[in-house]
């Protein structure tokens, strides 16, 4: 049995709500059921549908963007199982095996690298006051985001367990390192822009910009010691306020 495109589209759209009922007991388990429901309705009816739901209502927690790859592969495996093929492992085991590495790759790439990279890229125009910076941010970020969601479902449903080699092939963990390096490059530009704007705004001579370097380093060292940025900001602000009062 092959699912019609429309049903796959429904699964795709529903996957956006994967975390709507995130909870501490089973994380995204209900969300997974919600997403696969259009497909399961085609596979099973009546008691068999209930059985399928019961089988799948178990611990599930992965990165929301890469979840479509797991969901797609799961649907393909359900079909293969119905046709009597034996993949050599249970579907529960398959899910359990997929979630942690997908979470690791997704966390590292999307949260740890792509999001800050795009944010810093958008902050460059934002600090110059360009109103389109937030729009640019959304466009730049959601291009890969939606791309991976769609591609994940296609590769997952198309390949079943072979989705693993696609995931391996994308090498998201390596890309996250490259993205972070690019992020640091842009961060250097941003730091320079801000220091120059600040010295100009304060009416100081150009040589003062070089002070930004050690200042940054000192605060970064504080952060390494797990001091929250909020606290640092508050202390620095109080210091400069009282200094201006004293003067």
């Amino acid at each position: 049995m092959k699912l019609p495109r429309l049903v796959l589209l429904q699964v795709f759209l529903r996957s956006f709500l994967l975390q709507a009922s995130w909870n501490y007991e089973q994380m995204q388990s209900l969300g997974l059921l919600y997403a696969v429901t259009p497909a399961f309705r085609r596979y099973y009816t009546g008691a068999a549908l209930l059985m399928a739901y019961r089988r799948h209502l178990e611990h599930f927690n992965t990165h929301p963007y890469l979840a479509t790859a797991v969901i797609g592969a799961l649907l393909r495996l359900e079909e293969q199982k119905q046709q009597g093929a034996d993949p050599g492992f249970g579907l529960s085991e398959f899910k359990a095996a997929m979630v942690a590495p997908c979470a690791a790759m997704g966390d590292a790439f999307f949260w740890g690298a792509l999001r800050p990279l795009v944010a810093v890229a958008a902050l460059l125009p934002a600090f110059q006051g360009f109103w389109w910076a937030p729009l640019g941010y959304l466009l730049l970020y959601n291009f890969p985001h939606l791309g991976f969601r769609a591609l994940g479902l296609i590769r997952g449903y198309g390949g079943g367990v072979r989705v693993v080699s696609s995931l391996q092939h994308w090498r998201l963990s390596d890309w996250s390192v490259y993205c972070k390096q690019l992020l640091l490059l842009l961060l250097g530009v941003l730091a320079a822009l801000i220091s120059i704007a600040a010295t100009a705004g304060l009416g100081l001579s150009g040589a003062w910009v070089l002070c930004a370097g050690p200042l940054l380093w000192a605060v970064a060292m504080l952060m390494r010691r797990k001091i929250s940025p909020l606290l640092v900001i508050w202390v620095l602000c109080l210091l400069s306020l009282s200094w201006s009062q004293l003067r």
């Binding site: 800050p116 992020l183 640091l184 961060l187 941003l190 730091a191 801000i194 930004a212 200042l215 940054l216 380093w217 000192a218 605060v219 970064a220 504080l222 952060m223 940025p229 640092v232 900001i233 620095l236």
Partner: peptide, 8 residues
């Protein structure tokens, strides 16, 4: 500056 430092 604090933001950049916390990222760094």
């Amino acid at each position: 500056l604090t933001g950049i430092a916390s990222l760094l």
